[in-house]
């Protein structure tokens, strides 16, 4: 190969590998402006999850830039035509020790830094069913039933029973009070589904035969999409719901109204 061709190849290859960290970082930097980023968090624990994501993002980004940068530099520097031989080295014990120990420490740090948030979201439940943290005992607000391809939200009657004539059932729309720890029982009637509310940073599969407790505390009123996140059949993409976070009094009014509407005489239909 001619010298010019070799040179051009070196430049092209190095630029190509250089584009990986450059465009890679650029994509992440501009992601938020492009809308390719997390939707705004509105739950009490979502901030912690976002923080952990950012923490890992920073560690990952630095490693990414350093390793990809090193790769580019190595490709550029050591691909130049040279009649002499390569450095005859079989490795370095010292380097191996360093690049084993340092990542090990970082990884252990990452692992331990995740545990508290996980325990808060998934292990400790407001009703004390997983009593790792002292919570006031509360009853589930609702039972969420997933089925192909629908969400049903069942609110207990005034006595807190989920079986009985006065259970209020709502399709698609799930009304919850703001700034309240809401505990729901997640159930499925048929196949696996997953209860995913991106803005709450909450996801939990619904498994037939299991009754899984899920809790959240929404801190801002508004309507948020509920998405099924586990393949549940051909209509998976149709399985949507909406969570309406209402001020406490509006929520109470809605529930009272729904209980009354249950005994409607049909004149409004």
């Amino acid at each position: 190969m001619s010298t010019l061709k070799t040179f051009l190849l070196r430049v092209a290859a190095s630029l190509l590998f250089l584009a990986v960290p450059v465009l890679g970082v650029w994509t992440f930097v501009t992601a938020e402006a492009n809308g390719w980023w997390f939707p705004l968090n509105v739950s009490s624990y979502g901030g912690e999850i976002d923080y952990l994501f950012d923490l890992i993002l920073w560690m990952v980004a630095i490693t990414f830039v350093l390793t990809e940068g090193a790769l580019v530099w190595l490709v550029w520097r050591f691909s130049r035509p040279d009649s002499s031989r390569a450095v005859f080295s079989h490795g370095s014990h010292k380097l191996e020790m360093i690049w084993t120990a340092v990542p090990a420490l970082l990884l252990v740090f990452i692992a331990f830094s995740q545990m508290e948030a996980w325990s808060k979201v998934k292990i400790a439940m407001p009703d004390g069913t997983r009593p790792d943290e002292p919570y006031t005992v509360e009853k589930p607000l609702a039972e969420v039933y997933a089925s192909q391809f629908d969400w049903r939200f069942r609110y207990p009657d005034a006595e807190g029973n989920f079986e009985g004539a006065d259970v209020v059932e709502s399709a698609y729309d799930f009304y919850v009070p703001v700034n309240t720890k809401v505990l729901v029982r997640l159930r499925s009637r048929d196949v696996l589904h997953s209860f995913f509310i991106p803005q709450f940073r909450l996801k939990q599969d619904a498994v037939p035969g299991m009754e899984i407790p899920v809790w959240f505390k929404a801190e801002e009123t508004g309507s948020y999409e509920l998405i099924c996140a586990e393949l549940c059949g051909w209509g998976h993409y149709k399985m949507a719901g909406k969570i309406h976070v209402l001020p406490e009094d509006e929520y109470e009014a809605w529930l009272a109204n729904a209980r009354t509407a249950l005994y409607s005489n049909g004149s409004e239909d």
């Binding site: 999850i49 952990l52 994501f53 560690m59 990952v60 990414f64 995740q114 940073r201 996140a229």
Partner: peptide, 22 residues
Amino acid sequence: IIGGLSGIWMASTPVDIYIHDT
């Protein structure tokens, strides 16, 4: 390197709550 590094998010249980199955 990219595939390996992005795996750390998935391994982290709290972050996985959001990114699982995305």
